Simulated scan of single mutants.
Amino acid sequence: MKLEFFFDCSSPWTYMGFEMIQPLAKEFNVDITWRPILVGGIFNQVNPGVEFFKVRERIPQRKLDHMLKDIGDWEDALGIRVKFPPTGHPVNSVKVMRACLLLAPQGKLVPFARRCFQVYFGEDRLISDDAVITDICKDTGIDSQWLFPAIAEQSAKDALRANVDEAIARGAFGSPTMFLDDVDMYFGVDRIQLLRKAMERNRANR
Rank of each mutant, 00 (worst) to 15 (best):
P105C: 13
M97P: 04
V94Y: 08
I136P: 00
Q154H: 14
I133H: 01
D139E: 13
A99T: 10
S144C: 14
V110A: 10
F148D: 09
D129M: 06
E153P: 10
I127V: 09
I136H: 00
F117K: 02
W146V: 06
C137N: 02
R125D: 00
R125I: 00
A113V: 09
I142Y: 03
Q145E: 14
T134C: 15
E153G: 15
R114W: 06
T140F: 01
R115G: 01
F117D: 01
A152C: 15
F148L: 13
V132G: 00
D130W: 15
W146G: 03
K138S: 04
D124G: 01
F117H: 03
M97Y: 07
L109I: 14
D129E: 09
Q145S: 15
A131F: 06
R115M: 03
A150M: 13
T134G: 13
C137R: 00
P149A: 10
V132W: 01
F121P: 01
R115V: 02
G141K: 05
L109G: 06
G107C: 12
T140I: 03
P105K: 11
D143E: 14
P111M: 12
S128M: 05
V96A: 05
I136A: 01
E153V: 14
F148E: 09
L126C: 08
R98G: 04
C100W: 11
V96Y: 04
L102P: 05
F148G: 11
I127M: 03
T140M: 03
C116W: 03
S93W: 14
R115A: 02
L147W: 07
A131Y: 04
S144K: 14
G141T: 07
A131C: 09
R115W: 02
F148W: 13
V119G: 00
F112Q: 01
R115I: 03
I127D: 00
F121E: 02
A104Y: 09
I151K: 06
Q106A: 15
F112E: 00
P105G: 12
L109R: 09
Y120Q: 05
R115L: 01
L103N: 07
V110R: 08
K95T: 04
K95S: 06
Y120L: 10
D130A: 14
S93Q: 15
V94A: 12
G107E: 08
W146S: 06
R115H: 02
A131H: 09
I133R: 01
V94C: 10
